[in-house]
């Protein structure tokens, strides 16, 4: 996974990173032990969600920036409940290291 390599090299060079990826790649990315990973519930090719959902794109970026500021390695699942209207958002944190 190209971005995983990039994240590890940048961290080693003193640049903090956060990866925003569709949960499709969860196994591939977590097996690379990335420092900060935000997984979204969208299909491939749509890591920040669907076109023209400006608020959703911003919410995902805000969550990623929160991770970036954190002092420990985390993988976070960002998802919206598939409750018909897809209106409620939740997140779940998993410690990586």
């Amino acid at each position: 996974m190209s971005v995983g390599h990039l994240a590890r090299i940048l961290e080693g060079e003193g640049i903090a990173t956060v990866v925003i990826a569709t949960e499709v790649f969860e196994k591939r990315l977590t097996s690379m032990t990335l420092p900060r990973l935000l997984l979204t519930p969208y299909p491939m090719g749509r890591p920040l969600g669907f076109p023209r959902q400006e608020n959703e794109h911003k919410l995902i970026l805000m969550q990623a920036l929160k991770l970036l500021e954190g002092s420990k390695g985390l993988t976070v699942h960002y998802w919206k409940k598939q409750s018909g209207n897809m209106s409620s958002a939740e997140s779940k944190e998993i410690l990586v290291e």
């Binding site: 996974m1 995983g4 390599h5 590890r8 961290e11 080693g12 003193g14 640049i15 903090a16 569709t22 949960e23 499709v24 790649f25 969860e26 196994k27 591939r28 097996s31 690379m32 032990t33 990335l34 420092p35 519930p41 969208y42 299909p43 491939m44 420990k72 390695g73 990586v96 290291e97």
Partner: peptide
């Protein structure tokens, strides 16, 4: 999404035991 995930739910060629954190 879950169909796509099923195929990618195996570790890739590059796996690392330890992370790098800055």
């Amino acid at each position: 999404t879950q169909g796509q995930k099923k195929v990618y739910s195996v570790p890739g060629k590059f796996t690392y035991e330890t992370g790098i954190f800055h």
